[in-house]
Design a protein around this nucleic acid. Sequence first.
DNA 1: TCGCCTGATAGTTGCC
DNA 2: GGCAACTATCAGGCGA
Lengths: 90, 90, 90, 90
Amino acid sequence: MAADGGFAAAHLRAFIERIERLEEEKRALLGDIKEIYGEAKANGFAPKIMRQVVRLRKMDTSERQEQEALIDVYLKALIDTPPPSALAAE
Amino acid sequence: MAADGGFAAAHLRAFIERIERLEEEKRALLGDIKEIYGEAKANGFAPKIMRQVVRLRKMDTSERQEQEALIDVYLKALIDTPPPSALAAE
Amino acid sequence: MAADGGFAAAHLRAFIERIERLEEEKRALLGDIKEIYGEAKANGFAPKIMRQVVRLRKMDTSERQEQEALIDVYLKALIDTPPPSALAAE
Amino acid sequence: MAADGGFAAAHLRAFIERIERLEEEKRALLGDIKEIYGEAKANGFAPKIMRQVVRLRKMDTSERQEQEALIDVYLKALIDTPPPSALAAE
DNA sequence: TCGCCTGATAGTTGCC
DNA sequence: GGCAACTATCAGGCGA
């Protein structure tokens, strides 16, 4: 790669530049999102809860439903086997 | 730290050794868990589903319950606002 | 909040919608970045190294060198304490 | 599986219980490790550096140097391509 | 078996 | 200054 007259280096530069450009955009986007949570908080909403809500709404629409039935079967088989964490509640 | 006659170095060594020892144990534990999933698979169970089940059982017993009510309120407020991903399903 | 005639709910909906819209954009951006790393890989570059490079370029040079120096001090303090993995080599 | 008189369910329960037990141990182990880093910090060591040191000691020396060399090559190829952050300094 | 992708872990940052 | 949330990296599991 070093013996190619710098062509590879130029290639690499192009990739890195594109990536860094997109990362800048991403950074801006993250800032915008954060700002909205800030506004919401100023209006009496709980950002933490809102984040969970956004997350849940994402999950619910995924292909998870397809496997839901099987998960349910497994969970039901364990219905009288409480998870260990239940002990911590004492 | 360099001018302490190596006392700090000995101290650091002790900490690192303890950590590396525990990491070894952790590694072994992960191996055991993996093995069990393998056994289960050999018995006709789906490891992937089992992992999700374990995960769900963990979540259900966490402090999430405390915030569950509030999450519910938020979700209900959004009941006629479908998430964007619904559009992708077309 | 529940007793406000739904005004708060409408407000919440507006916030969530804005957030979910931006998250869609973010998702797209992440996909683009990933794609570029994929292209780079197909051209013989190592994505893992590229990521480190992008990260290093974000840091101030002096800060980076300071960290490396400290790492070196720690490593040297452990010079006669072989890591556990050496044992596995037997 | 459902028509087996619950034998499979019992089997599944056994697997899940073993897994959850081991996960508890893992959780405890992680807590212990975290605790040691805390102690070290209280004694004037930098946990962040320690973690990197532990990580480096896990890698083979030659492998590590190989990576560093490659990072250097990449960085040098980008030497006249300033990162975007330089623009922010203006 | 390889590549992809999701889930786990470490680092960073902002809040309290 | 410590704590907790969020982001990014990494490794293991899954599917082709």
